[in-house]
């Protein structure tokens, strides 16, 4: 019996190390499917990287690549000495920060409150959730149109309400005052994504052990005590991971809302973000004279952004949670 096992073990060879090609031959169909994808990603995602060479050239569209004049870091020097660049950087960071903080606080608070809707009102809970997701599906264009309606000087509901309640003496031109702009963007973001962002917290809340709530109730904690001592700690890891991951997008404050709401030209000092700067500089001038500078500015943003993003993902995986990938 024992010898039998011994021999049978001996006869089963350790899985032979197959060469790459013999294995690839066996998986011919899979390889054939994959190759077009690799070509596709190469063309649409890697090939444009070649265009980054423009950032180091005095680029002229009518010249071939070999005839271009190389200028080293001239465009970057120009970028770093442009006061407008620091202004758009400030705007980007400020709006990102406001969006991040406001977005997190409201989404978490909303999830906690939804979770507290009594069980008898299940239908009401579903309705609230469904309606709160709705704005997520609207485009920024539509949202900007709605915002400008709401805040409008003639017959906008906010101004009408403020007048009717006597809080203000005369109508406020919200979209024309630089001091309001960041907050309008911040609260529009909240309106658009609060419900949607709360989904992930609600999911985390459902995985909290119900026994904990019962134990806390016996220990004499009230509703808010339970929220504070059970629910919040229960979703703490989700909050931290999402916070770190979203912080990775700090240089992407958005583009569309600032571009459209800023198109009245009254608040450009506070509304323009890096993306708008790249767009305006890149397509400025005649016959592509801005292409090289725009590429340099875009490259600065991409490199910083990727570095921040990778760092943030590293931190969150180091904390033992699932990364984005």
């Amino acid at each position: 019996m024992t010898t039998n096992i011994a021999t049978s073990r001996a006869t089963i060879p350790a899985k032979p190390k197959q060469s790459f090609f013999s294995q690839a031959k066996k998986q011919k169909e899979l390889v054939l499917i994959t190759i077009p994808y690799i070509i596709y990603f190469f063309i649409f995602n890697y090939l444009p990287l070649w265009g980054l060479t423009m950032a180091f050239q005095n680029y002229k569209p009518y010249r071939t690549f070999w005839e271009q004049e190389w200028v080293g870091f001239k465009h970057f020097q120009k970028l770093f000495s442009d006061p407008a660049f620091y202004r758009v950087l400030r705007n980007t960071l400020a709006m990102s920060f406001i969006n991040l903080v406001l977005g997190f606080v409201t989404a978490i608070a909303f999830a906690l409150l939804i979770n507290e809707i009594p069980k008898q009102l299940y239908g009401f809970k579903r309705v609230v959730q469904t309606i709160s997701y709705m704005p997520h599906f609207l485009s920024w264009i539509i949202v900007c149109g709605l915002v400008s309606n709401i805040l409008s000087m003639d017959d906008g509901i906010i101004n009408n309400l403020l007048l009717a309640t006597g809080l203000v003496k005369e109508k406020i031109h919200f979209l024309g005052k630089p001091e309001y702009f960041w907050w309008i963007v911040g609260f529009t973001n909240v309106w658009k994504s609060m419900g949607w962002n709360s989904i992930i917290y609600l999911a985390a809340i459902t995985s909290i052990d119900p026994c904990l709530y019962e134990a806390a109730a016996i220990d004499g904690y009230g509703r808010f005590g339970r929220m504070w001592h059970i629910t919040l700690p229960g979703i703490k890891s989700t909050i931290i991971v999402l916070l770190i991951m979203n912080a990775g997008w700090i240089l992407n404050a958005g583009f569309e809302i600032q571009y459209i709401l800023g198109s009245n030209g009254l608040v450009l000092d506070v509304s323009e973000t890096i993306d708008i700067y790249v767009l305006k500089k890149g397509f400025a001038g005649t016959a592509g004279s801005g292409f090289a500078f725009g590429t340099a500015a875009g490259m600065f943003k991409t490199v910083c952004s990727a570095a921040i993003l990778i760092t943030c993902n590293k931190i969150s995986s180091w904390l033992g949670e699932e990364r984005l990938v």
Binding site: L49, L52, V278, G294, T295, G298, K301, T302, A306, I310
Partner: peptide
């Protein structure tokens, strides 16, 4: 993660 940007 990589993105060549608008102009490229």
């Amino acid at each position: 993660y990589i993105n060549a940007g608008l102009i490229p």
